[in-house]
Write a protein that binds this DNA or RNA. Structure first.
Lengths: 193, 193
DNA sequence: TCATTAAAATAGTGATCCCTATTAAACAGT
DNA sequence: ACTGTTTAATAGGGATCACTATTTTAATGA
């Protein structure tokens, strides 16, 4: 009998590489080494499996990143390390390129609208997490009081999405880091060269 | 008999909204009001139709943008207007959200790898166009000689991709413009507030 | 040992995928 | 009107889609 976490890991990897619409249940059962009825008894449906695989991956990958972001480091340092960590995640050897969430299910058949809403909500949550960190920085006097933290969060969110897209297209880690360094010059009070 | 350009327009809109994998040939023939054999005699295959629909849309939408970018305006102004025009294109009423190319076919089934290569190549071309404009600015003394124009182009390319993703998730035009204004503070020599 | 339960594999559901062979309709020239 | 040719519509082919009913195997308990 297949271990549940191993099944989710295998599913997450397939969905990461091929997307929701590009992954078939036959792909999933074959990769997991199980028969279709086992998949449905363990995970309910393809859609449910996708949700569970995303939750599983996020729970495992996101904790370290959130610790970095919400640490007591200066907010600028925390953001830098956070972005570098994402760039690393987008360019791991022997792993699919890009991010599993940042650029997932943007275009989709109408029948998959609820799946698209879920990934959109995950992206929104991650933007709100960034914004909350910036709001804290305002409170703690690290950023000017009039800072538009929402736009700041969506700007670095766009950088994260752009990195994912470019990683999917083959960009290497060093290229993404140059991109991050340039994006960091937009930080309030910083000066670009 | 269906006019070829009208057919491409209808196909482009469907592919734009639902993506390549999310659009079926049945969707296409129904929207065009033709029968399957007509689609194949006119356009060859679903893949060929997608290529032609992209070429058609790009030829029509890109000329104005390229004129803006390659005009004799100061490069910073040209870039600003170029990005604003893209933001407008990402948030048109009664049109699909986001960009048809920037975030298309990032994840895909293995059988669609050649389609993904094509969209990736289109994105790379658009980055090279940006880079060429920045190189010209260096030659003309608008930018310092040591400017890393490649990274600069990929940075604004990431902004374009991030805008497309966020527009797909529902971002309004004003929000994208705030994002652009912040991204423009990363321009060499500019100072963020 | 044998009946009962639980697990897993086979086999197949109707629907839809991309694409075409075949048939039907419209039009041309004589 | 009557062929010959082009154009369009129907119908369907082989494969795959997400998903299950059924059967077979395996484990369990008396």
């Amino acid at each position: 009998m297949l271990d549940r976490d191993i099944g989710l890991e295998i599913a997450a990897r397939l969905f990461w590489e091929r997307g929701y619409e590009g992954t078939s249940t036959a792909d999933l059962t074959k990769a997991m080494g199980i028969n279709p009825p086992t998949l449905y008894s363990m995970f309910g449906s393809k859609e449910e499996l996708y949700r569970q695989a995303l939750d599983f991956s996020i729970a495992r990958e996101n904790s370290r990143r959130l610790e970095i972001l919400q640490s007591n480091l200066p907010v600028y340092e925390a953001l830098s390390l956070y972005l570098y960590d994402i760039a690393d995640g987008n360019t791991q050897p022997n792993k699919p390129r890009g991010c599993m969430v940042s650029t997932a299910v943007l275009q989709h058949a109408e029948e998959n609208a609820s799946i698209a809403r879920m990934t959109a909500a995950l992206r929104e949550t991650s933007m709100q997490t960034l914004k909350a960190r910036f709001d804290r920085a305002v409170e703690e006097g690290e950023l000017p009081a009039q800072t538009d933290t929402d736009t700041l969060a969506r700007f670095y969110g766009a950088i994260i999405q752009g990195m994912s897209a470019q990683a999917c297209d083959g960009a290497c880690n060093a290229r993404l880091k140059r991109l991050i360094d340039l994006a960091l010059t937009a930080w309030p009070g910083k000066r670009s060269t």
